[in-house]
Amino acid sequence: MLSIKDLHAEVEGKNILNGLNLEIRAGEVHAIMGPNGSGKSTLGHVLSGRPGYEITQGSVEFLSKDLLTLDTEERAHLGLFLAFQYPVEIPGVSNMEFLKASVDAVRESQGAATYDTVSFMRRAREACAAVDLDQAFLKRGVNEGFSGGEKKRNEIMQMMLLEPRLCILDETDSGLDIDALRVVASGVNGMRSEPRSFLLVTHYQRLLDYIEPDFVHVLADGRIIKSGEKSLALELEEKGYSWLDESEVA
C-alpha cells in the first residue's frame, strides 16, 4: 500500500532523508527506530505533506497514487493519518467540533455519508472512553491545556474516529506512563486489521511489548540501515545504535 523508493528530502537547504526505501503492505505493522535527529519525524511529515520540505529525489506511492503530488488534506482524505510527536493547541475550537469537521471532510471526500450529529457524538464518546479520557475533553479546546499524555491519547482518539488506512505514530509512546502506554497500545491493537497498516516511530522496545510489529527498521542519517523482525528491537535495546554505526555504516 505504501512504497517509498530512494527518497531524498531537505529542509532549509539541509539534506535530511538520503535515499530511503520502505515497502509496507496492507495489514502490516512496521516499527522505525533510530537515534535522535536521524530523520524519523521528517519521514512522517514528508509523507503527510507538511509544507517546507523539498523532495529532491525519489518517489512515494500510496494506494496506487503518486503521494507526493497531493495536497496535505488530499493525503488525509486517502486515509493517511499522522499522530504528531508534538500536537499543537487550537484554542476555543472544541475537540468535538474539530473531530466532526474532520471526519465529515474525510468521509465527504470519499463519497461516504456523513454521520448525523447524534450518532457522531455517540461514536466520539465511545472513542473518548476507549482512550480513557474523561468526556469533558470532548468539550475542551483541541489540545488546549492538555498534558503531554492527554495530547497523545487525544491523537489516538482522532485516529480511531477517522479510521485511516495508514497510521503513522510519531513517538506516541514517549513520555507516557505505563497506563497511558497500555491505552495507546490497545487503541492500536483494536484497530489492527487486514486493510490497515501502521508505521510506529519509537525509541523504546517497551511499546513493542504491547504492539507486536511485523518488521523493525533502523533509521540513521536519513536512510534505513537495517531491517529485521521483532527481535531486532530487543537487540537495539540491549546494544544501542552504535554497534550498527560501526558495522554497517561507512
Partner: peptide
C-alpha cells in the same frame, strides 16, 4: 494562526480555508 495549526487541520482532512475559519471561530467563541 500558526502554520502548525493549519498543518494539523489539513492533516485531519480540512482544507486551509475551512481550517482558518474554524480557528478564527474558536478565537471568537467568548
Amino acid at each position: 494562526v500558526s502554520d502548525d495549526q493549519l498543518y494539523l487541520c489539513q492533516q485531519r482532512g480540512l482544507d486551509p480555508e475551512k481550517a482558518v475559519s474554524m480557528i478564527v471561530n474558536g478565537f471568537c467563541k467568548e
